[in-house]
Design a protein around this nucleic acid. Structure first.
Lengths: 253, 253
DNA sequence: AGTCCTGAAAGTTTCGAAAATTCATTTACA
DNA sequence: TGTAAATGAATTTTCGAAACTTTCAGGACT
């Protein structure tokens, strides 16, 4: 609570980066939230693979916590759509498929453009500064290729999310922001697969996007982000092996 | 499990009504899910009032279950936006405000029209039959006035949701359906308040909506549902006492 | 060979008590 | 009289063990 006040220097330095807008509805409890965050990150980065069975024994070891706490985190993940559960037979990581990626991307196009347009209209100096700052941090890394170490990919993922969050931070619609954020996370799973497999490079769309937003050009910015989203889908569809035939994988009826 | 098989008559009669399309992403465990469902219903019907503190002691008694199970259900509700939590100080029912209702309704307009248009394009005979059936059940009750008993209001709420679910059941976008469903539930809290307080009657919009949908008239149906949503907002804003000044209620900052 | 039981093993779900934290009230001090 | 520290009650959070369910393997029967 008083942590920031007691450590003015570190606090100030961090707040420059961490002034992320309070976009999400939920704010959780210390230990449980910690586990939840780690698990979410692990699912997003496919450290816990799609369809993988999530046994309490293993998870308990991995996250060093009790079943109750795990269950709570799992429950959260289920309603975020990152995990599934069936009565009596435990939890598993939510499956992925090209159809799913297409579906969520279509909705993302709407939510990203909607929130971005609104954010631009309500932009402030602090908002611009945060965009500049987070873009700087993102560009400093450069999109990782398949050979780069996992830690780098993870860091890039974080900064990527941070940049996109900064863009829409001044949007005035909490619900739009909430759903946008959930879908963005969903998309991160597919982005991760792309980073793992795809070798083709796309031109730096983030720079164009940043400049369009800073110029307060709503139409241009929305057009760019739409292309950006659709581009990632196409790249994933063509370069991630297995993602196209995902339908054949089904066991159900 | 075998309950339906053992009671053929009641089972059959109920299944006519309960053939709700499997629209939601989550499917939960028996006992926990039961508690979750009850709590959700209680929040939606303001039996648990907005901002109300949710103490484990009381809840434990009310739902006859353990803290662990409660915690899991609460956690679910938090990510659905029906409850809040802060580290170390427990849970409370999510607040309501006119601003929130306006915000979520705007997004609802988009999601309802989007899903409805798609559902109409992919409509089947079974879908039409389900619409006819659920509309029949809804119209049989007639919108309750403030004096009607709570049980009637609850039943109407269920049938109302069931009718609207039936309309979009054949929509092909799982994500759109998922978010639509969440927002619909959110709106139910405000509908409940309207039922409690509002005395004005609106003409039967559900009938028009049903016929437009059955006639596969996308534009008309979408227009009607848009008016329907905006109508409920206006009615709530003007007839639910306290909803307009909700902003002044804040304690923060 | 294939199906149906049976029992053991693995895994999940539920529970209530112990530990930790917050909240409210009183007491001490300026 | 007002502020700060201290105490104790109330509440939340975490945990692991008991109860229950599903899964799997082996054997009996068709």
């Amino acid at each position: 609570m008083a942590k920031v006040l007691m450590m003015p220097f570190d606090g100030a330095r961090e707040s420059m980066v961490a002034t992320t807008a309070p976009q999400d509805v939920s704010r959780e409890d210390a230990a449980t939230f910690d586990v939840l965050r780690k698990m979410r990150e692990d699912i997003l980065c496919c450290a816990l693979k799609p369809d993988q069975k999530l046994r309490f024994g293993e998870l308990r070891q991995r996250y060093d916590t009790s079943v109750g706490t795990l269950r709570e985190a799992l429950s959260h993940l289920v309603s975020e759509g990152l995990a599934r559960t069936e009565a009596g037979r435990g939890f598993q990581v939510a499956p992925i498929s090209l159809a799913d990626f297409l579906d969520l991307s279509e909705l993302r196009v709407y939510l990203e453009t909607r929130t971005l347009a609104d954010a631009i209209r309500h932009g402030t100096d602090a908002w611009e500064a945060d965009i500049v700052s987070s873009h700087f941090l993102l560009s400093k890394l450069g999109k990782p290729s398949p050979d780069d170490p996992v830690s780098l990919k993870r860091e890039w993922g974080k900064r990527h999310k941070r940049f996109h969050d900064a863009l829409v931070a001044t949007c005035t619609s909490p619900w739009s922001l909430h759903f946008r954020s959930e879908l963005f996370d969903q998309a991160r799973r597919y982005h991760w697969l792309t980073m793992i497999h795809a070798r083709s490079r796309r031109r730096n769309e983030h720079l164009e996007l940043r400049d369009a937003v800073l110029a307060r050009d709503v139409d241009l910015a929305c057009g760019l982000i739409e292309k950006h989203i659709r581009g990632t889908v196409e790249q994933a569809a063509s370069e991630v092996p297995g993602l196209t035939l995902e339908v054949a994988k089904r066991k159900r009826t």
